[in-house]
């Protein structure tokens, strides 16, 4: 039983899109979510293949704020976030994913968490590290990355397949 096979998302229901453009009006990032749908669907036509190429290589794909408003307003219940994520994966296969995601994964492999220590500022202008501030406020320290090797290997394996 392979996890990666099971989480594959079916994009069949995207076809229900009747291009009402409601999703465009609600997108706070100014994207055209239905364009991603049509770009995906149009790949069956060799003449439209370059539209798909354009979309996958276009950085606007990474400007989705994942607010899910488009999904919520879609009269045809088209899972627009699924198609955006699908296209992001396709872009990632070509090495086009922003570096930030890699950094986060690296962090997790090292510490279980996406972020390490940060600078915390107070309204009075005092600066603290995360550790200092947590200690000052009586919060427990950040979790220790104990016995992380197996976890790290597992992530590496899963990352390579998506």
């Amino acid at each position: 039983m392979v996890l990666e096979k099971l989480v594959e998302v079916s994009l069949e229901t995207l076809r229900a899109c009747y291009t009402c453009f409601k999703c465009i009006g609600v997108c706070p990032a100014g994207l055209r979510p239905n364009l991603f749908v049509k770009a995906y669907l149009s790949t069956v036509f060799r003449e439209l293949r370059d539209v798909y190429e354009e979309i996958v290589t276009n950085s606007s794909l990474w400007s989705c704020a994942k607010c899910l408003k488009c999904v919520e307003v879609c009269p045809q219940k088209v899972p627009l976030n699924d198609v955006i994520e699908y296209l992001q994966r396709e872009a990632a296969k070509r090495g086009l994913a922003p570096r930030a995601y890699q950094d986060m994964v690296e962090n997790i492999m090292g510490t279980f968490l996406a972020f390490g220590s940060q600078t915390i500022v107070s309204r009075d202008g005092d600066f603290y590290t995360t550790g200092e501030a947590r200690e000052l406020l009586g919060l427990t320290p950040l979790p220790e990355p104990n016995k992380i090797e197996k976890f790290r290997e597992r992530l590496k394996g899963l990352r390579s397949i998506g």
């Binding site: 989480v7 994520e85 994964v105 279980f112 996406a114 899963l158 990352r159 998506g162």
Partner: peptide, 22 residues
């Protein structure tokens, strides 16, 4: 609990199986 890990939210689309595992 002290033993926690990232939920995988940021890259749920990029690495769906990895984030479900997380």
């Amino acid at each position: 609990p002290r033993s926690v890990n990232c939920c995988g939210f940021a890259f749920r689309g990029l690495y769906p199986s990895m984030s479900l595992y997380l």
